[in-house]
Design a protein around this nucleic acid. Structure first.
Lengths: 371, 371
DNA sequence: CTGCGCGGGGTAAACGTTTACATCCTGCCG
DNA sequence: CGGCAGGATGTAAACGTTTACCCCGCGCAG
């Protein structure tokens, strides 16, 4: 069945045209459903010929002449990180429904690698680029990226941001600041005074924004102490280490707020490992509400950003831009999701700040209408 | 800075040629580092012109003439599932290093959707397709896929499988059968008699293979009882539901073996929810060893397949095939990873079948040498 | 009867590369 | 000194589409 050496001659639009006894123009008109009129009988013959020859129009040839590839590049930090995986899924589904292909690139938060991917995407002539992960703070990198992206958009490319970034472009972001403030205030309301913060690498903008939310809430309550902040890699290991450091540093700490769920999960593991009970002895909270957050024990209290929805909204924005319509930056509301990992501090005065467990919507930022 | 309407004329190889005072052929030779000789002075001038014009060679034009896109399609069940995310990362890194781009497609285990993606990838003229998820059993679908793929390979396309599939192509698979048998035997060795099995949809081949491993091990031990098998969606919810069903169905069940970690996590959640202690009352085991497995409490005992490594090996195989070298099916060894979620049954006679916790390598299947 | 609009179809020029082939030198071997 | 092997460069034909233009014939309004 398999003839390794018999790479049969590719069947092109010309082959079909000959078989159907028409010109290539007609074939193209039938197959690309252009609005040019074609008689039913001709259409029929063309369709038949195409089918029997198993003709498969070449997207690359088509792209060359139309200068649109119907492909979108998505730059994430790491596809293996569930946060990005979920957003990617939202992007993919929406783009796919709109006839676009998605190519995912893991930058690993490395400026060089990210730049390399961007250049590659430009060379591929993707119609748009979605930056899913937060921007990376790096002088040289920032300049280069900016010039690259400006050039790209000048040429008709579309750029969409899904997280805080130094570069200015249409974006869909969740309300990081508010989410962070709310969670911090919630913990304070439970009676916690010494609340640790586990951040990510300071070069990632999202991390900085969330940290600033925590910081301002703590300051307003007169509880801020820089000693309570520690950062690590954006991984479970990173979260575990940061938690360990914090724990060793301040024996009165009764809560840990991690800037994302992955790190919070790491903290959870570390605490269990050293025999600290969560939430009886120490409360733990995360950010993002990735799927797994609901399934660990105790359930992780977190700030839900609606990962899938974020991806969908991002794709919709990009497609709106691609079709020439305008679309501007939107901030998506976040939602506090309280599960079992948070509770009043041990023996702490539970002030019962009427905050019912469950979901509290933190509106602000208007979700745009469906298109 | 941004002139919305001034889409400056694209700079092509011709523009560069004129600027450098040479022919397009020369420019091409310099920029695509062909082996054709070019004098240093000319090369210099071309490079300079290209840089100052910000010339960016079009991959699509290049692809049209070379009929190679340096793009690979990966078909997974769901990018938001950590198992696939991790494999994708392995694929991506390796392909990227080899100069290939990866486009990921989530089939959602829907034959129609998967077929649609495959056709799209063919139209895109990707150089290869990697099927990451297990094949879907569906008569009509199977035929269509087979003819599509045969046609594709006839035309020079490369197909690689990363899981059991009805379609025959070079593959890298982990030893599912053996992993399943080993875990089952391990549980039996701990003293469990009533061991439940949580499978995925029966249309997915991987699930069937793992189930058969469980089944044969149980039969050999004279413990098999079809009532102990239940299946559900490949999600945490699916695992939770299946666990619930099993629990209600057999009150003597002391262990649950889920066909993948995601479902095991769901089972874990359900058990905790209904107040069943793991592993004191019921042991739980999974399959895959996704990253999170180590970070839940109790740590999940599972069969490690080395997700990243699987992706890497798959990409290496594909690239070997792409460069004309041959490569054949490899089966990767799996490894039993025992964590806290498994223990002897309550009050059960712990036969102390000398099985030390930790990692036990289940060799067989020779990992190929690095290329 | 003339002319115009339009349905239906063809011709050929792009699109931006790569590459087979031809051309022209220059130097070296016999 | 003739010829020949390369080195260096150019010419132009692909690659597989789309699409701007052109052409023909027919029906119908004026």
């Amino acid at each position: 069945m398999k003839h390794p050496a018999s790479r049969r001659p590719t069947v092109s639009i010309r082959t079909v045209a000959e078989a159907a006894g028409v010109s290539t123009a007609t074939v193209s008109r039938v197959l690309s459903q252009a609005d040019h009129p074609v008689s039913d009988s001709t259409r029929e013959r063309v369709l038949e010929a195409a089918a029997s020859l198993k003709f498969r129009p070449s997207h690359v040839a088509r792209s060359l002449v139309t200068s649109r590839t119907r492909t979108i590049g998505a730059i994430v930090h790491d596809v293996a990180d569930p946060y990005f995986g979920e957003i990617l899924r939202g992007l993919e589904d929406t783009f796919h429904a709109g006839g676009y292909q998605l190519v995912a690139c893991s930058s690993d938060r490395d400026p060089v690698r990210e730049l390399g991917y961007v250049e590659h995407l430009l060379a591929q002539r993707v119609d748009g680029i979605v930056f899913v992960g937060g921007g990376i703070e790096d002088e040289a990198y920032g300049h280069k990226l900016e010039s690259l992206l400006d050039e790209y958009r000048d040429g008709g490319g579309v750029v969409v941001l899904l997280a805080p970034n130094a570069y200015d472009a249409p974006a869909v972001v969740s309300n990081n600041e508010m989410g962070s403030v709310s969670m911090t205030e919630y913990l304070i309301g439970l009676g916690h005074r010494r609340i640790g913060f586990v951040g990510g690498p300071s070069t990632v903008r999202t991390s900085a924004v969330r940290q600033s939310g925590y910081q301002s809430a703590m300051q307003r309550a007169g509880l801020f102490d820089p000693i309570l902040m520690e950062s690590g890699e954006f991984t479970m290991e990173g979260g575990a280490q940061a938690a360990a450091t914090l724990l060793a540093r301040d024996s009165e700490m009764s809560a840990i707020f991690a800037m994302n769920d992955i790190m919070a999960l790491g903290a959870l593991k570390h605490l269990a490992g050293v025999g600290v009970n969560v939430p009886d002895q120490i409360s733990v909270a995360g950010f993002d509400d990735i799927q797994i957050a609901e399934f660990v024990r105790p359930g992780l209290s977190t700030v839900s950003v609606g990962t899938f929805g974020l991806g969908e909204a991002g794709a919709r924005l990009a497609m709106r831009l691609l079709t020439g319509r305008s679309g501007s930056t939107t901030v998506l509301p976040v939602e506090l999701v309280i599960r079992g990992s948070t509770a009043p501090p041990p023996g702490g005065l539970d002030r019962r700040r009427a905050m019912r467990p469950g979901a509290k919507d933190l509106g602000q930022g208007n979700e745009e209408e469906r298109s």
